[in-house]
Design a protein around this nucleic acid. Structure first.
Lengths: 403, 403
DNA sequence: TTTTTACTAAATCTAATTGATTTAATACTA
DNA sequence: TAGTATTAAATCAATTAGATTTAGTAAAAA
């Protein structure tokens, strides 16, 4: 174990990132305002923004006239200053995106699967890499890395986690094949193919990271991200950073028990798209394939019923989160259809207000829609390279020690 | 909201603290070894240790001969280099200590009460301050501050939290009196009386902080501190720091529901000294007043039964902690009699091993005995002044902004 | 005596601060 | 309306703090 000291170079990098963060949150800032906000001197800001401009990470928008004195120069993020590549491997699909520095999606690929194979994932990845190289040309060097987001336990609960594709019967064989995703072979392969660093997180942490980088003008520092996909999970944001625990498995909300067990013993079986699909099937209603179908009264009513039942199922677990983490807010995101999410939030709010002994924090939707995870994957390299993280200052040097 | 930049002065303070931490954990280190461990240059270490020696925070132990080359100088913490004053207000007693820089208790006071009044607390505090000033003389200036540790909800559960003193009948009047402890009036008063900064935390966080500063040669970075006193609580240590949540209430383990409700609805009623006392009373066994009495077979057997029942009660809550927080270890400490603690740990280990779906982390006792809280209170000012905290670098400057 | 190790002094480098200066706009005034 | 004052933004130049590099010295074992 090493407790690293801090040098001026690390401070500089940190200060650069603090400035980038400010400019990202409020485009069009003047150097003077940045100086105020950071507590650094105007001269320092002048030097650092000069460097950021030179490196193309920041651009000049224009000048603000109308006030006394010299007009201030408005600085903004240069959208084309950096890119992040992201791949999300989920139980029912593999998707990939290229994200620019401002979080805008430049390229996007997706393929439906019933539990992903190594081969399908590699095909998607190769297609993405080829597309990106063709699109960016010499700007390829601005790609900061590849992010990979996948569920923590791809090879578990195969029978209860429904996917759309043809029913597989050879569950044991499938499970064996899926253990591929327990290794880090795919990360290594990605890194090799691209020549770029590869960052891996579980889907919940990836989604929460995108919330941190792009979520709000004044992001919350303490929240719990409740992530709903084919299964579900969670991520704890503490002091403005995702906390991943001693073994990278923190926030495993899905592994808490449900209140009644009606929708499955574990929350990941109850609060999930699988659960909702089973619920539709159990009530003989076809799964909507077009957005408008969600508005149908029968559909609305069924969704409402499901939301209320599930809210009740997860209430004790959410109460535990509130008692243990004392969050400012609970943010719900993931891959639920955008028309279902508000109903779920309503139901959870109502249920918690009735049952909780502790004050209930804000409960609201994540900023990103169903694309949150894939986007989150692409955010990982950008976050790693440009967000002001604690590690930067505390554990930056990584020299090995004498024996 | 302010995102502060980082300057070289902050780096220096941080590096000083990193060095102090190393020297605290492994007394007798050479400058060269410190340089290796921190990744800083030998010269930097020379300068900083020079300053620490001059300020009396570090002392020279001797020289190591026997190896080739010039013998290395052994540096250690100067025990008399700094002091911390601590007061613990609990439901059944008020206690206070003066701690030296190495964590050794210099002075200690205690008074039994049945729920503490403002007046009793002030008496104890004044006595402590007088004693300390008499003892330290001109070294009074080395006292870094006053720490106050108290339960989060002093005025709740009055009926179920047993104390030793005479039964109070006027519960409503008592409760009104106890709301004093919800304010920060006592902190302000302490600060005024001593002219020193006052640091307040709840008892669980204070105990965990002492574990962080004095707990181990190579302290764990991720653990859950389960704190058992008249009631119980918890504290989450993440990345080597106590996490206190958005409103300072994180880790409220006691507010999670029990499995069966047999020992009370909330964990703080079941896993607590109160619960154990009620259990003894319910089985017509007198509460041991001498340490040896705990060894009596009848007593042992009763304690064992209680431990097993309580372990079962808290098992779901501990599983939630493991799933949500993914800790390296669960550390149990607080004010349980030292003979009861190992039995409780055994019971919890056994119960979790049987019930948990996730791998069970290490479960072990805290380093500090029943004095953990009071000690923890006294640690707060030392921790604040000398531990390398994240805040130091990230939020050090606190200038106010223009409107 | 040679080699090795521990440590330090002086010079250098990086980055932030301070104070003066330049630039460009609005506000005031004759 | 022209000219001057005022204000604000930004930069230049000099200074300061702190870490690193380089070149030593001191002390002990081989």
């Amino acid at each position: 174990m090493k407790s690293s000291g801090s040098t001026s170079e690390q401070s500089r990098i940190y200060n650069e990132r603090i400035i980038l963060q400010l400019v990202r949150q409020k485009p069009g800032l003047s150097r003077g305002y940045i100086a105020q906000q950071t507590g650094l001197s105007a001269q320092t800001i002048s030097v650092i923004t000069g460097s950021l401009l030179e490196r193309g990470l920041v651009k000049v928008d224009g000048k603000v006239r109308g006030r006394r004195g010299q007009p201030s120069v408005q600085l903004s993020l240069n959208h084309q200053g950096a890119y992040g590549l992201g791949i999300n491997v989920d139980r029912d699909r593999i998707s990939a995106v290229l994200l620019d520095f401002s979080g805008h999606c430049v390229l996007s690929l997706e393929k439906q699967v019933s539990f992903p194979t190594e081969q399908t994932a590699k095909e998607i990845a190769l297609a993405l890499i080829a597309d990106v190289k063709a699109r960016l040309q010499e700007d390829w060097v601005k790609v900061q890395g590849v992010g990979l987001a996948k569920p923590d336990y791809m090879d578990a609960w195969l029978d209860s986690l429904v996917t759309d594709a043809v029913q597989r019967t050879d569950l044991e064989g499938l499970q064996a094949e899926l253990t591929y995703w327990q290794s880090d072979a795919f990360e290594s392969w990605l890194s090799e193919q691209t020549g770029l660093p590869c960052y891996k997180e579980n889907d919940a942490i990836a989604a929460a990271t995108s919330e941190l980088l792009f979520g709000a003008k004044t992001p919350r520092k303490h929240f719990f991200y409740l992530f709903v996909s084919i299964a579900c999970g969670g991520s704890i944001v503490a002091d403005g950073e995702c906390y991943s625990g001693a073994h990278g498995k923190a926030g495993s909300f899905g592994l808490l028990p449900t209140a009644t067990g009606k929708h499955g013993r574990w929350i990941l079986e109850a609060l999930s798209i699988s659960s909702l699909k089973r619920f539709f099937a159990g009530h003989d209603l076809p799964w909507p394939t077009v957005a408008a179908q969600w508005q149908h009264p029968k559909c609305q009513q069924l969704v409402d019923q499901w939301c209320q039942e599930v809210a009740f199922e997860i209430q004790p677990a959410l109460s535990a989160v509130i008692a243990l983490y004392d969050p400012e807010a609970i943010v719900i995101g993931g891959r639920l259809p955008s028309s279902v999410l508000p109903q779920l939030i309503d139901a959870v709010q109502t249920c918690l207000a009735q049952q909780s002994v502790l004050p209930v924090p804000d409960i609201g939707p994540a900023y990103a829609d169903e694309t949150a995870v894939t986007l989150g994957a692409a955010v990982l390299p950008l976050y790693e390279t440009f967000a002001p993280q604690r590690e930067l200052l505390l554990l930056a040097s990584s020299q090995t020690l004498k024996p």
